[in-house]
Measured scan of single mutants.
Amino acid sequence: MTEYKLVVVGAGGVGKSALTIQLIQNHFVDEYDPTIEDSYRKQVVIDGETCLLDILDTAGQEEYSAMRDQYMRTGEGFLCVFAINNTKSFEDIHHYREQIKRVKDSEDVPMVLVGNKCDLPSRTVDTKQAQDLARSYGIPFIETSAKTRQGVDDAFYTLVREIRKHKEKMSKDGKKKKKKSKTKCVIM
């Protein structure tokens, strides 16, 4: 069974824990209790493949930012979460993405942009803004509501699919490099 290491990042209060708990335990946590770091595991079937999701729910508070490099190193894919009623959390996505790329030393890291709290009427981040940002990053965008469960499975499952595509691409690139290195030079 394939294991996928997913990391949920975003500013404090955007609903990272609520999304994760909704996926794992099928219930909505409405009281806000700032996370330092929590880890969850769940076995699911995605596109006919049974897999184990190892999900790291991270601290959004700035005082825990020193811990970010460590979990970013171990993560295979990242859910970059903002709240649709919090423009600052949307603007912060850029910083999370840049930090992930720096730590992973790669421009090509599996990510999904997630606009959470889409059940709320007080939207300050337009869907088109988020779609445009995701398009500019070359990553999928999904709106979710941890409260109603809308888009929750889709967000995590899409990230797994992005990781699969990335692994497939990397193995193809690896095979191309191996083929090239088999060419021999004969000096007579």
Score class of each variant (00 low, 15 high):
63 E>P: 09
64 Y>S: 11
64 Y>P: 13
64 Y>I: 03
65 S>W: 04
66 A>R: 06
66 A>I: 11
66 A>G: 08
66 A>P: 11
67 M>K: 06
67 M>R: 04
68 R>D: 03
68 R>N: 03
69 D>G: 05
69 D>P: 03
69 D>E: 13
70 Q>W: 12
70 Q>A: 07
70 Q>F: 12
70 Q>R: 06
71 Y>I: 13
71 Y>D: 12
71 Y>P: 09
71 Y>N: 14
71 Y>E: 14
71 Y>S: 15
72 M>I: 13
72 M>A: 11
72 M>H: 06
74 T>Y: 07
74 T>W: 07
74 T>N: 12
74 T>E: 14
75 G>I: 08
75 G>A: 15
75 G>P: 03
75 G>K: 02
76 E>W: 15
76 E>A: 15
76 E>L: 15
76 E>G: 12
76 E>T: 15
76 E>V: 15
77 G>V: 11
77 G>D: 00
77 G>Y: 02
78 F>W: 04
79 L>V: 13
80 C>L: 15
80 C>D: 01
81 V>D: 01
81 V>Y: 02
82 F>W: 07
82 F>A: 14
82 F>D: 02
82 F>N: 03
84 I>E: 15
84 I>L: 14
86 N>A: 05
86 N>H: 04
86 N>Y: 02
86 N>Q: 03
86 N>W: 00
88 K>V: 10
88 K>A: 12
90 F>S: 08
90 F>W: 09
90 F>L: 13
90 F>A: 12
90 F>C: 10
91 E>G: 03
92 D>F: 05
92 D>T: 09
93 I>P: 01
93 I>F: 13
94 H>W: 05
94 H>S: 14
96 Y>A: 05
97 R>K: 12
97 R>H: 09
97 R>T: 12
98 E>M: 02
98 E>A: 04
99 Q>T: 04
99 Q>I: 14
99 Q>A: 07
100 I>M: 05
100 I>R: 01
100 I>Y: 03
100 I>A: 03
101 K>G: 08
101 K>D: 04
101 K>A: 08
102 R>L: 09
102 R>I: 08
102 R>V: 05
102 R>C: 05
102 R>W: 02
102 R>D: 05
103 V>Q: 05
103 V>P: 03
103 V>C: 13
103 V>F: 15
104 K>C: 14
104 K>I: 10
104 K>R: 14
104 K>P: 03
104 K>T: 14
104 K>D: 04
104 K>Q: 12
104 K>V: 09
105 D>V: 05
106 S>R: 10
106 S>P: 04
106 S>T: 11
107 E>S: 11
107 E>C: 14
108 D>V: 06
108 D>R: 05
108 D>A: 06
108 D>N: 09
108 D>Q: 07
109 V>D: 01
109 V>R: 05
110 P>K: 01
110 P>E: 02
110 P>L: 02
110 P>A: 03
111 M>L: 06
111 M>N: 00
111 M>R: 00
112 V>A: 01
112 V>M: 06
112 V>K: 00
112 V>F: 04
113 L>A: 03
113 L>Y: 04
113 L>E: 00
113 L>I: 11
114 V>K: 01
114 V>L: 11
114 V>F: 07
115 G>D: 02
115 G>Y: 07
115 G>R: 02
115 G>M: 10
115 G>C: 10
115 G>E: 03
117 K>M: 15
117 K>E: 13
117 K>A: 13
118 C>N: 06
118 C>G: 11
118 C>L: 07
118 C>Q: 05
118 C>K: 05
118 C>Y: 06
119 D>H: 07
119 D>V: 03
119 D>F: 03
120 L>Y: 15
120 L>R: 06
120 L>P: 13
120 L>Q: 08
121 P>E: 12
121 P>Y: 10
121 P>C: 08
121 P>M: 10
121 P>G: 13
121 P>N: 13
122 S>V: 07
122 S>F: 07
122 S>I: 10
123 R>G: 14
123 R>E: 13
124 T>A: 12
124 T>F: 09
124 T>Q: 12
124 T>C: 10
124 T>E: 12
125 V>N: 11
125 V>G: 12
126 D>T: 07
126 D>A: 07
